[in-house]
C-alpha cells in the first residue's frame, strides 16, 4: 500500500520539481559554507600569520577575528534563509504531492 503511494508520488512531476529545487538550493548553501570554512582552515593550516595581521595599521583587532565573526553571522543567516524557504515553499509543495497521491489512491 505505502509502496504504491511512494510510486505515485515519485511519478508526480511536482516531486521531481521539489527534489530538484530543494536539492539545488541546499547544495548551493552547503557548498558556500564548506568552501568558506575550509578555505579558512587552509589559511589556518598554511599561512597562520596572515590571520594575525591587524585590520589597519596600529589596530589590535586582527583579520582573523573579523573573518571569524563574519562567518558566524553569515552562516547563521544562511540557516535562517534555508529554514524560511523550506518551511514555506518546499513544505507547501510536499503537502500537495502527498495530497495528490491520496486522491489518486481513492
Amino acid at each position: 500500500m505505502s509502496s504504491a503511494m511512494y510510486e505515485r508520488m515519485r511519478v508526480n512531476p511536482k516531486f521531481q520539481e521539489l527534489v530538484a529545487k530543494r536539492g539545488r538550493f541546499a547544495w548551493t548553501l552547503a557548498f558556500i559554507v564548506l568552501s568558506m570554512f575550509y578555505g579558512f582552515v587552509m589559511v589556518v593550516a598554511f599561512n597562520p600569520t596572515a590571520l594575525g595581521q591587524p585590520v589597519s595599521e596600529g589596530s589590535f583587532v586582527t583579520v582573523g577575528v573579523v573573518v571569524e565573526l563574519f562567518m558566524f553571522i553569515f552562516f547563521w543567516s544562511l540557516t535562517a534563509v534555508y529554514v524560511r524557504r523550506a518551511n514555506t515553499e518546499f513544505d507547501a509543495l510536499t503537502q500537495e504531492i502527498v495530497k495528490e497521491a491520496w486522491k489518486e489512491n481513492k
Binding site: 541546499a26 547544495w27 548553501l29 552547503a30 559554507v33 564548506l34 570554512f37 579558512f40 582552515v41 589556518v44 590571520l51 594575525g52 586582527t62 582573523g64 577575528v65 571569524e68 562567518m71 558566524f72 552562516f75 547563521w76 544562511l78 540557516t79 534555508y82 529554514v83 523550506a86
Partner: peptide, 24 residues
C-alpha cells in the same frame, strides 16, 4: 586565545551542514 575561537567556529559550522543536508 584565537585557537579557541577557531575550535568554536568549527563546532558551529557543522550545524548549517546538518540542516542543509541531513535534518529533514
Amino acid at each position: 586565545g584565537y585557537d579557541g575561537y577557531i575550535y568554536m567556529l568549527a563546532f558551529f559550522a557543522g550545524w548549517p551542514i546538518i540542516l542543509f543536508l541531513m535534518a529533514e
